[in-house]
Design a protein around this nucleic acid. Structure first.
Lengths: 356, 356
DNA sequence: GACGCCTAGAAAACCGGTTTTCCCCGGCGG
DNA sequence: CCGCCGGGGAAAACCGGTTTTCTAGGCGTC
C-alpha cells in the first residue's frame, strides 16, 4: 500500500476508490470519513491522510452514484410563476444563494401557462433529481396541490399561504398594508383606492384584509378596490377604473411594484399630477422604484430573506424536522419618495375624463 | 413469468426490474426499448407490452442510476450575472422553456459578487450533475474562462462573445444600433449621446461600434459617449454627465432598458422635457417600457429566442456536433413610443444646471 | 442434413458511491 | 492463561440503471 499503488490516469476524474488507494485504506473508510459517520472509529493520523488524499486528487463525488446509494441528491427545485417579475427575482436570488451556502444546487422551473409543469415538477422528485420543492406559485386550484399531500415529497410554499398545509413561508403582509395606510393617514389622506391582485391569491387577500382592517380601525371611509393581474397592464387597468369611478380618491395603494408602474402611467394618462392630485404608494421596493417619475414611495419587504428562509425551512424538513409555518421577521419599512404627499383640498384638477 | 410475479409494493416507486417482470422480459430489454436502441430487435407485440407496463406502473427512471451507468444526466446549468435584470430574465425564460421541451432540467446560478461561483459551477460538471453549461456572464477576466478550454466540458456563451471560443450565441447588436440611429436620423436628430455599459463587455463594445459606424456613415457628428453600470443608477449617472458636458445633444441612446430608466430620471431631474428637449431610445424592449413616463421608444430584441438558441446549440454539442457560433436571426425592430420626437430647434429650454 | 445466419431476447458485467457486517488485534480482567 | 471487549478498519452487499456479450431456436442454403 504505497502511493505508487494509486492509478496514474493523470487526466482522469478521480473516484472514491482512487482516494482510498492513495491513502492506503478502503473506500468505505473514505466514504465514512467524508460523511462524518460517528460510528466509525479512526485514528486522527489516518483521517488526515485521507483528507490529504482527497485534496491532492481533487476528488469530487459523483452525484448520481451518491443518490443511487440512497443518500440525498443535494439539489432543490424552485417553481416560480413569472421569471420576469423582479419581485420573484429577488426571492429567487435569496433562495439560490442560501441553497448554495448549504451545498445544494437549485433547479428552476417557471409555471406560466405551460401546461404540464406541475406533473413534471413532481417528477423531479420521483426521478430522484431533487430532494425537495420550493413552490412560489400555489394558486388554490393548482394541480400540484392535489398531488403533494399524499406523496412524501418534502416541500414548502413560498409567499403563498396554502391553508392548513403547515408549511407556509410568508411575510408580514398585513403589517405592510398597515404601514402603507399609516403613511397615507399621516399625510392627511382619507379616501384611498387599492389596486389589488388576482382574487384567489393569498397575498392578494392578505394585503386587502390588512388594508381594510386598518382603515376600519382608523375610522376612515372604506377604501375602494379594483383588481388586476400582477403586471403593469393590470395596474394600469385597475387604476383607470378607480379614477373613473371614484373621483374623490386622493391616494392609491398598489399591490405590487409592477402594478404600481401601471398605476403611475394611468394617473398620468388621466391628466392628474402625482402627488399633487393623487398620491401613489406600492407594496414591494426595488432600486427601480427610485428612478420612476415621480420616484415611487414603496414598502420594502425582505424578499431575499424570504427566499433564504424558505430554503432553511425546506432543509429542516430534509433533516427530519416536521414542517411548520414560518413568518419571516423584519418589519415592513416605508421608503418615502416623491409619489406621496398631502392630499389636494378640492376636486381633482386634472383633465380626467369624468362622465359628462 | 406472469403478472403475478410482479412485486406488490403497492405504494412503492417502481423500478426498471419491476417493469420487466410485469412485462415478462428482462430489464435490459426494457432499457433498450425505452432508449430506442436500434441494435435491439424485438417483436412489435413485446414492445407494446413493455410500453404498457411502463405506463401502468408509472415508471420513472432514477436519474442518478442513469447518470451512473454512463448515460447523460439530462440537466443543464445556466450562469447569469444578475437575476433581477429583466433582460436576463427573458433569456432565462427562453432557456428554461427550451430545456424543458428537450427533456432537460435547468440548474441556476447567479454570478454576482459571489466569490467562488466559477469554481462551483465547473464542479457541477465534474460531479456529473449536469451535461453542459450556458454561460451568460463571461467577462473577459472571468476565472471560468481560464478553466473551461482545457476541460472537455460542453458549454456555450450566451449574449457574451468570447473571441475565438467558437461557441458564441449572440444577437444582431450592431444592426440594433443601426436601427436606433436610423430612427433618430429620420426624426432629424444630429447630435446624439450614448449611454454605454461597462467597458470590457462584448455587448457594450458591439453596441457602441454599431452606433459609431452608422453615425460615420450618415455623416453626422460623432456621438458623445458616457459609460455606466447596467442598471438604473448607471444610466442615471452617465446621462447626467452627458447632459452637463454636451448641452447641444438632442437625443440619447441607452444601452439597456434599466439604464434607460435611469436616463429618463436624469433628464427629468435636469428639468428637461422628453421628447421636447431630449429624445430617449433604448436597446431592449419589455412590456415595462410602455408604462414609463413618457412611454419609452425601444428596440425589441429576440431575447427568449436567444435563450432557446443557446440551449439548442448546447444540445447539439451534447449530440456530438462540434461547437459553432450562432447569430440569432430576427431583425431588431424599433418600437416607437412617446420618448422620441423631432429635435428642438434652439438650445435646451430646461432648467438644467449648466456651468455658470 | 449440416452449417451458418438472423431474430428475439437473456445474462451479466459494470458505473461509483453508502452502509452494514465482519474480522483482526491488542489490552485487560478473572 | 483464557476469554471478552473495543478500537480500527476491511469486505461485501447493495442502489437502479446501461451496455456488451451470449444463447436458443427457426430458417434458408449448399
Amino acid at each position: 500500500m504505497r502511493d505508487a499503488d494509486a492509478p496514474l490516469h493523470s487526466k482522469q476524474r478521480s473516484r472514491l476508490i482512487d482516494v482510498a488507494n492513495h491513502a492506503g485504506v478502503t473506500k468505505s473508510v473514505v466514504s465514512r470519513v467524508l460523511n462524518n459517520d460517528r460510528t466509525l472509529s479512526i485514528r486522527e493520523e489516518t483521517r488526515t491522510r485521507i483528507l490529504d488524499a482527497v485534496r491532492d486528487l481533487g476528488y469530487q463525488p459523483h452525484t448520481g452514484a451518491r443518490a443511487l446509494a440512497g443518500a440525498s441528491t443535494r439539489a432543490l427545485a424552485l417553481l416560480i410563476p413569472d421569471l420576469t417579475n423582479p419581485v420573484y427575482s429577488r426571492i429567487t436570488r435569496g433562495a439560490v444563494q442560501q441553497a448554495r451556502a448549504r451545498g445544494f444546487a437549485m433547479l428552476l422551473a417557471e409555471d406560466s401557462a405551460d401546461f404540464g409543469v406541475d406533473r413534471q415538477f413532481a417528477d423531479l422528485v420521483a426521478s430522484h433529481r431533487v430532494d425537495g420543492l420550493l413552490i412560489a406559485s400555489a394558486r388554490p386550484d393548482h394541480p400540484l396541490l392535489g398531488m403533494l399531500p399524499d406523496s412524501r415529497i418534502p416541500h414548502v410554499f413560498v409567499n403563498r399561504v396554502v391553508a392548513g398545509s403547515g408549511r407556509n413561508i410568508s411575510l408580514q403582509i398585513e403589517a405592510a398594508s398597515q404601514a402603507a395606510l399609516d403613511h397615507l393617514l399621516a399625510l392627511g389622506h382619507r379616501r384611498i383606492g387599492h389596486v389589488s391582485g388576482p382574487e384567489q391569491l393569498a397575498p392578494t387577500v392578505s394585503r386587502r384584509a390588512g388594508l381594510l382592517g386598518a382603515a376600519a380601525a382608523a375610522g376612515i371611509p372604506e377604501p375602494s378596490i379594483e383588481s388586476g393581474e400582477f403586471n403593469e397592464q393590470g395596474g394600469y387597468a385597475a387604476a383607470t377604473r378607480l379614477l373613473a369611478d371614484h373621483p374623490d380618491l386622493t391616494a392609491i395603494y398598489a399591490s405590487t411594484l409592477n402594478q404600481a408602474i401601471g398605476v403611475l402611467s394611468a394617473v398620468h394618462a388621466a391628466g392628474l399630477r402625482i402627488p399633487g392630485d393623487i398620491s401613489v404608494i406600492s407594496y414591494d421596493d426595488l432600486p427601480l422604484a427610485g428612478f420612476l417619475h415621480p420616484p415611487l414611495t414603496a414598502i420594502a419587504m425582505p424578499l431575499m430573506e424570504l427566499g433564504q428562509a424558505a430554503v432553511d425551512a425546506l432543509c429542516a424538513q430534509l433533516e427530519g424536522a416536521p414542517p411548520k409555518d414560518v413568518l419571516v421577521p423584519g418589519a415592513p419599512e416605508v421608503v418615502v419618495r416623491g409619489s406621496t404627499g398631502p392630499p389636494r383640498s378640492g376636486p381633482p384638477a386634472g383633465t380626467a375624463k369624468v362622465p359628462s
